[in-house]
Write a protein that binds this DNA or RNA. Structure first.
Lengths: 216, 216
DNA sequence: GATTGATTAAAACGATCGTTTGAAACAACT
DNA sequence: AGTTGTTTCAAACGATCGTTTTAATCAATC
């Protein structure tokens, strides 16, 4: 566990907030896990809301690089960029160097309208949308940015986010072994080919016979 | 407002639970809006959790027909069925006859593992997955049901759910007018064509020049 | 009209919530 | 050693939580 109390509190509280929600976590529960006194929260963060804000800020500051202003290799085609974009989104959830609660907390904040939500969208989501929009522009150079391109972007991101937001459902539907047979490589490949084919920039999905994993 | 207190409590509490979460809503707040006494909750539902369960049950019992065991017209091709499936999923959110909180509450319950979540998946989601699986089977008759077909199904559903789960983000990204320019018809058409093209059962998406709505 | 059972109402219960208090512990410097 | 400023601690604060209690109200039956 971390040495200083402020860090410990943020890590413990962030995980709890992400898992159960702001109101469902008491500061006594947090402080007990963080081996701190209850007054530590108010002393270091002002109040509970301040601790929550600190968690959110910490999660945002640790976000994965490469989604907002990525630097692609020269040789990359638009298809390669799309594949890299999708992979990085998927990796963001599974990155072992980063606690899971970071993105969980941010996704929780994004799911309901608030001032924090707006700030997050502008500083975090909007650049991603711009990156994806540039890739789209490369796929359809002659066109303007219309409602349809928003929908295409949402089709890409929606597929990726499904595996992060609906994890419990997937686990029940596919079973534990079926769920754990999903890999970043496999998902990246599927989603990328699915999207490219839909956009006329790749061969349609070909269904292959049952492989080693039987998911019934 | 409804006549009997039990119904009023369920409607008021369900809306609040769906919007803010179980722990963030007090029974005094609920009873005030429902014009009931605080003791009414414990009298009619045992305790707060009982009221919550009643809300969940009510939401589930009012679910839209046609997703679990749909009856397609004889003339429908697999593509037609897929389109109808997607449309009904989209309509489920926008159905004016049904309060929004019904699906919001269910989606909230589905987002975290619990016994209720498992029951919901088995009674509500699994049949939908089966319906979608049958459509897939019709598109690829010779194949067996493998991990890949799960991923294809998730690609379909993920696109639809995005518009329900990420509504605040979409609203901020596209702006209010841009968001409100999205129609069930338009979304159904886009997602259906996107999926069919990806699966090699339709022409790829063609990007058209800017239409009447400028969403920048 | 009295009685019975079901429902509503006001008040209070103990528990827990976020927060504050005031003193103790600690470190750094004169 | 003494002083100063910072951090930690146990205890308690008032407020609110879900729940219970007790009495009042109502409807129906004898």
């Amino acid at each position: 566990m971390a040495e200083d109390i402020k860090t410990r509190l943020i890590e413990v509280a962030g995980e709890a907030f992400a898992a159960k929600g702001y109101d469902s976590v008491g500061i006594r529960e947090i402080c007990q896990k963080a081996e701190a006194n209850v007054a530590a929260v108010n002393y270091h963060f002002g109040d509970k809301r301040g601790l929550y804000r600190a968690c959110l800020q910490h999660a945002q500051s640790c976000r994965v690089e490469g989604l907002d202003q990525p630097v692609w290799p020269e040789s990359y085609t638009a298809a390669d960029k799309l594949r890299a974009f999708i992979r990085r989104m998927l990796e963001e959830k599974l990155n072992p160097d980063r606690p899971e609660w970071h993105q969980d907390l941010m996704l929780r904040e994004l799911s309901r309208p608030s001032e924090t939500c707006r700030e997050f969208v502008e500083s975090y989501i909007r650049p991603m949308a711009h990156t994806l929009g540039d890739i789209m522009q490369e796929l359809f150079p002659q066109q303007e940015w219309t409602q349809q391109k928003w929908m295409i972007g949402f089709s890409v991101v929606g597929q990726v986010l499904f595996y992060q937001l609906q994890q419990p459902v997937i686990r029940i539907l596919m079973g534990d072994e079926g769920f754990e047979s999903l890999t970043v490589d496999g998902l990246t490949d599927h989603i990328t080919r699915f999207c490219l084919a839909a956009l006329g920039h790749g061969e349609p999905i070909t269904v292959e016979p049952a492989n080693s994993v039987e998911t019934n």
